[in-house]
Write a protein that binds this DNA or RNA. Sequence first.
RNA 1: GCCAUGGUGGCGGAACGGUAUACGCGCGCGACUCAAAAUCGCGUUCCCGCGAGGGAUUGAGGGUUCAAGUCCCUCCCAUGGCACCA
Length: 823
Amino acid sequence: MFHEYNPSSVEAKWQKLWEKEHVYDFDLAKAKDPYYMTVMFPYPSGANLHVGHWFQYSIPDSYGRFLRMRGKDVFFPMGFDAFGLPAENYAIKTGTPPAISTKQNADTMVDQFKRMGVMVDWKYSLNTSDPSYYLWTQWLFLEMHKHGLAYKKLGNVNWCPKDQTVLANEQVWDGKCERCGTEVTQKPLDQWYWKITDYTQRLLDGLDDLDWPKKTKIMQRNWIGRKEGIDITYAIKDSSEKIVCFTTRPDTNFGATFIVIAPDHPFAKKISAEEIPSAHQKEVKDYAVVTAKKTEMERQAEGRKKTGAFTGYYAVNTLNNREMPIWVSDFVLANFGTGAVVGVPAHDLRDFEFASAFELPIIRVVVGPDGDTSPVTSVAQVQEEAGTMINSDFLDGLPILEAKEKMKDHMEKKGWGKRIVSFRLRDWLVSRQRYWGAPIPIVYDPEGNPHPVPEEHLPWLLPTDVEFKPTGKSPLTDSKEFIARTEKIFGKGWTPEFDTMDTFVCSSFYYLRYLQQCHGEVRSSATNHDTLIDKAMEKNWMPVDLYIGGPEHACMHLIYARFVMMALHDQGVVSHDEPFKKLVHQGLITNQGAKMSKSKGNVVSPDTFVEKYGSDAFRMFLMFMGPFEQGGDWSDTGIKGIVRFIDRLWKTLNAEKKPDSPDVKAALHRTIKKVTEDIEALHFNTAISALMELLNLIEKEGGCSLETSKIISILLAPLAPHLAEELWQLLTKPTSQQANKPTNFVINQPWPTFDPSLLQSTTMTIAIQVNGKVRGDIVVDATDSKEEILTKAKELENVKKYLDGATIKKEIYVPNRLISFVV
RNA sequence: GCCAUGGUGGCGGAACGGUAUACGCGCGCGACUCAAAAUCGCGUUCCCGCGAGGGAUUGAGGGUUCAAGUCCCUCCCAUGGCACCA
């Protein structure tokens, strides 16, 4: 009598034994065939691991197990991205210091990861809020500062009135705070920036060689936004002022009929302030006031309805001496390009809309695709992409691409313009007026000049004597200890920088620190034993072979990390300049089509399922839902199929052995092939269905051999590590001496190989088509010749019916698959 | 508007240009049971037909091919990202 499979006790037993026998202990220094894979580290939130976490971490764990069994030394570390606003908000609400709540949460999550059964060696773990970690966040800041990549700049920044914090442009969504959804306003503040713009071209070029999803590369390219164009300087009639317009389409300049500047463009400001006389001063000023009040949302709601005000001035187009009225309008933004646009209404949609709204002239300078040379009077006629020049003097007859270059040459020669490559990407604002982050290691002398905190004072500890309540100032301003510490070290009147760093800084280099967290030993730079990363280790392990994470990070984290790696490379700290060789995005697990989130209240907890069916069943169920890169919609009904599969497997592999039938033998080798290829491609869903098919066959045949059972338990090991271990141990019946020896664990067994000669059964089924329609099938021996098979096919009753009285024009034979008659 | 991805049974999803709907869920019928659950067996894309069989079918419509879910063109819908970016 065999007992039923009891997942909770079996899983607990093996988890305990694996830990005791150090089955998943890892030694970076001893690896022979290093493979570094990691998943974007989680934020230790108060909620437990949710279904999304299970999906995101357990499936890569299975992949890592598979690679390990194929001989790779797989390093699969896990850490916590612990700084950030949620813990601070929680502190504001409850008074619990973030250091305590995040530590608790992280500890709970580690227990849950252990319950999941991941092959993580926790001695390589890290937590970005730990001083032993943020010392390196601070070191990185100093490094950037030393190399001129960190600078201070006063400027309008996005301000979230609710969070009382500044947001990077990249963190503003729809004019609202990325995290809390509050409408963002503008506020001038003195901030630290990192010069990511020094690396725009390299960030762009580097993408070519990365094994990343095409989609992500395109998104980054668009985000960086390289544009080749020209700055054209226009003189203004009756004024000594000039206006510079950036354009990518100088070829259409003979069709320019007006100029639009931003309401807060210097020229418009001067008119408003009456520094420059204008009969339209009031309109311009009023328009600027109205625009300043408008939120991003309101502007969007207005859609494409164009508004504006005439300045009373004209710019002169030197090409044809045309006088172009200068307008102000809110569709032109002061901080983009030069804050001024030259309007070519016949060949730009927005310009056309503007010209239509204010009855400005529209001149066609590009012939339409159908040879249309009539005046442009409707949106449909606006031609933006291709065509031949017309009404453009020396450009006439040229295709636009050629005309573009010819015009640029012409303008540069005449001194009217200058070629410019512009990028959309802007410098990275790293200052945060928040408590729960790494303090910026800068102090100010009594005159207010910034000085780096010398390295021996790192970690520059985050003070604890602060109020968490947002006051509009940085919370660290409250700390008496922080100020006293600064004065004690640097002298009377010196003050610390009160801002902390953006958490994207913490996550921009953590993949390096995993490699340096040796055996739990926390070393500080103060004693000069530690470096950010050991050079030999970095050389051997970087870049990360496989990085897994959500596509939402395509434009922020994944660009920052690349920038930091490039900067460190240039500074001689690391030998590689790209952090992630291969990137995979896991799909999103939704609930009833919506993203799971606390605010929506549709978060599914895995705990009850894991309790009832075990970690293996839950993991396999998530894998079986669909392709890893696709994700899927949560439904709890399907888990039964996996539970049945496990029970049947248990029953069948523990049953009395019998020799494999030829069919079972062939099926086994086909399954080895399919499971291997599918896991390689991260197609876990089809790998599992292949195993199900094999089991179905074995059940039908009444059993299989011991050897086959063992192979199945090995194939199962990456997918259901606990079940596979239990089966393996029962099947191999280790002596007490062998038991629990590292070599005896299933994870240490070599991955099975298949025999290509055994893949094919002795007979095969061939489908017969007549004129493309399937009319039947025949079973033939694998050794039959084409002629024999064709003859057999023609004898088939249902095929005969269609062939009689017709002449066969063509016979197509696809080996092993089908015959197609064309009559 | 632009870019990307996707659209296949009642549902999750399979399918080197080669028998569309594997595998699983659900459902139906049967076995076991006093009964139910569990388990096992059979069936299950839709329409017509007692059946043999026939017809239709991968968002819609065209095209290439002996053969198209797969390749090409036009369009529709959904999701994600970006957006008056000059």
